[in-house]
Each structure stands twice: as structure tokens, then as C-alpha cells.
């Protein structure tokens, strides 16, 4: 039997909290600039004092744009097997002041409407080359 137990797509990028899933990032306490992934220092040239603190982002956002990936990209992309086209969105998390990309968790990828509300979830992207199911953050249209 091969081990297909789920793994995270990357370390320290998302977490399941008692309030639901959140993205793990940081925010500069001086200028309030958000960072995802987390940053060790503030990169805002107009900020005169870097004061980075851990921050959670999500779960509510608005879809700024969307594309459907119609062909299988090469690794390290993890895709459904057998391949089926998936949607990727660019999402504005207005409360957090953050724009973030993420795969869209949706039955029909061509049905997604730009400008609509989406919510952060954690879900499998597919299986990686080593057979493990790979979990990442995704957005689900509401």
C-alpha cells in the first residue's frame, strides 16, 4: 500500500482555526501593509519603521478576476488526475487590504462570475508526484 495521506502544499501558509481556515501572513504595525507569505521586514518604501507582526487573513473576499487553466501545467503544479481544467482567481480580501491568488473550488470552472463573493477553504488540489494528496488554500464562490 502506498501512503497517500494528505500533505500541505507548503509550510506555514495557512491554518485551520476554531473560526475556520485562515491564511498565515504578517502585517507591519506602523503602515498596516499586509504580507502573504509573511515577510521579515516591511517593504513599503513610504514606511519609516518596519514593525512586522504575525497576521491571519480571510475568509471573505471578492473575485477580482478569474482564468480557467485548460491544459495540464508541468510540476510542481498539482492538478486533478485525470486532468480536468480548474479555475484560478485573483481575490481581494477587502477587510485585510490584501489581493491574493488561489485556486477556485467549484464544480464548473467556467461558471464563475467576476465581482462575486468568495470564501476561503482548505481543500485538495490533487495528488503530487509522490502519491500524497496535496492540500492548499482555495476560494469557494458563495
Amino acid at each position: 500500500m502506498t501512503d497517500s495521506s494528505p500533505v500541505h502544499a507548503a509550510k506555514d501558509l495557512f491554518v485551520e482555526t476554531s473560526d475556520g481556515p485562515r491564511l498565515l501572513g504578517s502585517r507591519c504595525d506602523t503602515c498596516k501593509a499586509p504580507y502573504f507569505p509573511s515577510s521579515e521586514a516591511c517593504h513599503n518604501p513610504d514606511c519609516d519603521h518596519s514593525d512586522i507582526q504575525p497576521a491571519h487573513f480571510g475568509p471573505h473576499g471578492t473575485l477580482w478576476s478569474v482564468t480557467v487553466q485548460n491544459y495540464p501545467p508541468p510540476p510542481p503544479v498539482v492538478a486533478p488526475e485525470p486532468y480536468s481544467p480548474y479555475a484560478v482567481g485573483l481575490v481581494d480580501l477587502e477587510t485585510d487590504g490584501l489581493r491574493v491568488i488561489g485556486r477556485l473550488h467549484v464544480e464548473d470552472p467556467t461558471s464563475v462570475k467576476v465581482g462575486g463573493p468568495v470564501e476561503l477553504i482548505l481543500a485538495p488540489l490533487g495528488s503530487g508526484q509522490d502519491g500524497h494528496e496535496v492540500i492548499s488554500w482555495q476560494f469557494e464562490p458563495r
Binding site: 502544499a9 478576476s65 482564468t67 487553466q69 510542481p76 503544479v77 484560478v88 491568488i101
Partner: peptide, 19 residues
């Protein structure tokens, strides 16, 4: 971006185009 989402170059351009 590739490992956690899966957005090659043409997908990036496609997001701008769709917007």
C-alpha cells in the same frame, strides 16, 4: 505560486485579460 495554486505565465496574463 505553481505548487500551491498552479498559475503558469499564460494564466497570469489571462487574469489581466479577463479583468
Amino acid at each position: 505560486r505553481q505548487r500551491c495554486v498552479g498559475l503558469p505565465g499564460p494564466g497570469f496574463w489571462a487574469l489581466l485579460t479577463r479583468q
